[in-house]
């Protein structure tokens, strides 16, 4: 697959978007996507992910002043058909009047590629997506997962400069989503193509993204690697949106943090009243006499590989912890916790 030769970087410079009905979908957005990198746009519904992707694709133009660059190439005023981008949609968007083969060949047909070369490329794509046996099928004879494979093959067949995917797995069931996600991940690495992947599913984002751009209300809330986003959320929105987070309030004094549930070792500066955060998996349930924090069980949920326990009396909101211990948690029982020393986070 000699595709990686020409991967390019994408730059959005001050791209805002106001729709004709006055909806402000994007505040001025500046974003750099490195060549060959997979960037995931993640955020709640309506935050502007699709709009950002469509501006990169050339399906929407940014408000005046915004600029889109592919490498050295200013494509701001180029329509999508001249940008050479591959697109994959949630709804697959396969041409129902064409067979699987014809769908994959479409971009090559439009480019007037010679028939034998085209046939070779289509065969290569069918093989790559492991759908060779579906070549002659009609689209309505395919399952959702097969359709999305065809859509990927169709987008990649033309060797696009960048690959843009808008929630490609959202319409599939959980098991298939997991499998195809792994395949897409391998595919993107193998091709070394610059890719922008839109999702509102954080697991997908974590697994696929070299970097994640968390968006909120038309703005970038944080950009960073999955680890950065998870362990060093830079604001309350990101902390709450990604995973589960627990909040404690307390006073920091001489290396100790005094909270409603007990005292914790504290390496940060002294403060009269601060808020600290920690992830459920960083708390461990221990015997009461060894505990730093004590709370009472509000509810517990057995999840198979672990049990999720909700506690009150520690923070203002219930604190969530998870344990692999095979024990029952009676409602109202007192439980002791310790927290990994480096797991406490603060927000600026």
């Amino acid at each position: 697959m000699n595709q990686s030769t020409q991967s390019i970087d994408i730059r959005l410079i001050e791209c805002a978007k106001t729709f004709s009905d006055g909806t402000r979908a994007l505040e001025p957005l500046t974003l750099q996507i490195e060549a060959g990198e997979t960037v995931v746009l993640l955020g709640p519904s309506g935050c502007g992910k699709t709009t950002t992707l469509r501006i990169i694709a050339g399906l929407e133009s940014p408000d005046p002043g915004g600029q889109v660059l592919f490498g050295q190439d200013d494509v701001t005023n180029q329509p999508i058909e001249r940008r050479n981008v591959g697109m994959v949609f949630q709804s697959y968007a396969l041409f129902p009047n064409m067979s699987v083969e014809q769908n994959i060949a479409y971009g090559l047909t439009v480019r007037k590629m010679a028939n034998d070369e085209k046939a070779r490329r289509v065969a290569e794509m069918l093989d790559m997506m492991q759908i060779t046996e579906l070549a002659g099928r009609r689209i309505d004879q395919l399952s959702g997962g097969q359709r999305q494979r065809v859509a990927l093959a169709r987008a990649i067949a033309v060797r696009p400069r960048v690959l843009l995917l808008d929630e490609p797995l959202t319409a599939l069931d959980a098991l298939l989503r997991e499998r195809l996600r792994v395949e897409i991940d391998q595919l993107l690495r193998e091709l070394g193509i610059t890719a922008v992947y839109v999702t509102h599913d954080q697991n997908e984002a974590m697994a696929l993204g070299d970097r994640i751009v968390v968006m909120d209300k038309g703005m970038v809330a944080q950009t960073g690697t999955p680890q950065d986003i998870y362990y060093k959320p830079s604001n309350a929105f990101v902390a709450d949106f990604i995973g589960t987070i627990n909040r404690l309030r307390g006073t920091a004094n001489k290396g100790m943090l005094q909270t409603a549930g007990g005292k914790l070792p504290w390496s940060g500066p002294d403060a009269g009243d601060i808020e600290v955060l920690f992830r459920p998996e960083d708390a461990t349930i221990v015997a009461l006499d060894a505990a730093e924090l004590r709370g009472h069980v509000v509810a517990s949920y057995f999840l198979g590989d672990r049990t999720k326990v909700l506690l009150d009396g520690i923070g203002e909101q219930t604190v969530v912890v998870e344990t692999a211990d095979r024990r029952q948690f009676a409602k109202g029982a007192e439980i002791g916790l310790i927290i990994k020393p480096d797991a406490l986070m603060t927000l600026e």
Partner: peptide
């Protein structure tokens, strides 16, 4: 989305009309 997919693959306006 069908028209957008065709255009992303390089189809001109006329080709979109004819093929989609």
């Amino acid at each position: 989305a069908l028209e957008e997919a065709a255009r992303s693959l390089g189809a001109s306006r006329w080709q979109v009309i004819r093929d989609v």
